[in-house]
């Protein structure tokens, strides 16, 4: 059986992977986002409200939170369509900080079993107790996280193999060329940012229910920039890239405690050198192509 520490680390990796995947999706269509933590936050609150205050079942609350986060993505994508490059990155940063600061003053409480439950501004949102009331153990919850992550990853990988995936990559590489090919670039971008919001939202809902307590300052810009960095460390060639980035940082460096106290000095230096050698990450497009060719050849040889 896994010990508690390992379960905690794996759960963390699973939840952060959703943010990393979400930032990766935006990178695929050629934009940089510093703001995916906003959707994580929106869904953490929305799903917490649904399960702790309205008495919804867990899965419905997660889907609801993710849907609201996707809607948030849509709301962000439409006004920012004309904004590109670094301006887009900063606009998403401004959006995420607006969400965080709005949550600092957002108060909505109802009485549940004689106690006030609900978000209370900067005091945060306590008692999202669903997994305790339903008696779900940390190990079981880890399976829920990994299951949802596997489904999300499978859908993204499947889309990447289809024509739609090729279109999204083209929009990211050269929007003008994509437009000439008859691709609706604006629609592709709006849909991708909304989908990225949804993906981050799943992670946020899981986070709120595992920790039973969320506060606005968790969802600061550092969370989003880490999510973005994971994609770039792991590689932008495949959806496995962001997961590799998460595994390297949280899985290897943070949890082994070998470098505690000066972890960022080691990690920062390693990543800086990695980005010099491989500016699109470990699993970049060329590496993915080589791996795929290697696997195919092996398959053909059998």
């Amino acid at each position: 059986m896994l010990d508690d520490h390992l379960i905690g680390v794996l759960s963390n990796m699973g939840m952060i992977s959703f943010i990393a995947l979400s930032a990766y999706l935006v990178l695929v269509v050629g934009e940089i986002s510093f703001g995916q933590q906003a959707f994580f936050a929106i869904s953490a609150y929305a799903s917490g409200i649904a399960s702790a205050m309205w008495g919804w079942p867990f899965l419905a609350a997660v889907l609801w939170g993710a849907a609201i986060a996707g809607l948030g993505g849509l709301l962000l994508a439409i006004p920012t369509l004309r904004i590109r490059g670094l301006y887009f990155a900063i606009a998403t940063l401004a959006f995420a900080e607006m969400v965080r600061l709005a949550l600092e003053i957002f108060t909505y409480q109802v009485e549940v079993d004689g106690e006030l439950v609900g978000p209370d501004g900067s005091e945060g949102f306590r008692d999202i107790r669903y997994i305790y009331e339903a008696d779900i153990s940390a190990g079981e919850f880890l399976l829920v996280i990994l299951g949802l992550l596997a489904v999300t990853l499978a859908i993204i990988l499947w889309i990447e193999r289809t024509r739609l995936g090729a279109i999204l990559r083209m929009v990211g590489e050269d929007p003008a060329l994509a437009r000439l090919q008859g691709v609706n670039v604006n629609l592709a971008k709006i849909a991708t940012v909304a989908a990225a919001g949804l993906v981050a939202g799943i992670g946020g809902a899981l986070y709120a229910h595992l920790n039973t307590y969320v506060e606005p300052k968790i969802f600061n810009v550092m969370l989003g920039v880490h999510g973005l960095a994971y994609g770039l460390i792991g590689g932008l060639g495949t959806a496995f890239g962001p997961l590799l980035g998460v595994a390297l940082d949280i899985g290897v460096l943070e949890s082994t405690r070998a470098f505690s106290g000066y972890r960022m000095i080691v990690f920062g230096g390693l990543v800086a050198v990695l980005l010099i050698v491989r500016p699109r990450g470990l699993l970049d497009e060329a590496a993915v192509y080589r791996i795929r060719r290697f696997l195919l050849r092996k398959h053909a040889g059998d």
Binding site: L27, I32, L86, V225, L228, A229, L232, I233, Y262, R263, M264, I265, F267, G268, G269, V271, A272, L275, I276, P279, R280
Partner: peptide, 21 residues
């Protein structure tokens, strides 16, 4: 490489963490 603007930005971010620590 000059055309890898995102890599430079992320690199400057991890160096930020390094300096701060």
């Amino acid at each position: 490489r000059k055309d890898m603007a995102v890599a430079s930005m992320v690199s400057s971010f991890v160096i930020w963490m390094q300096i701060e620590e």
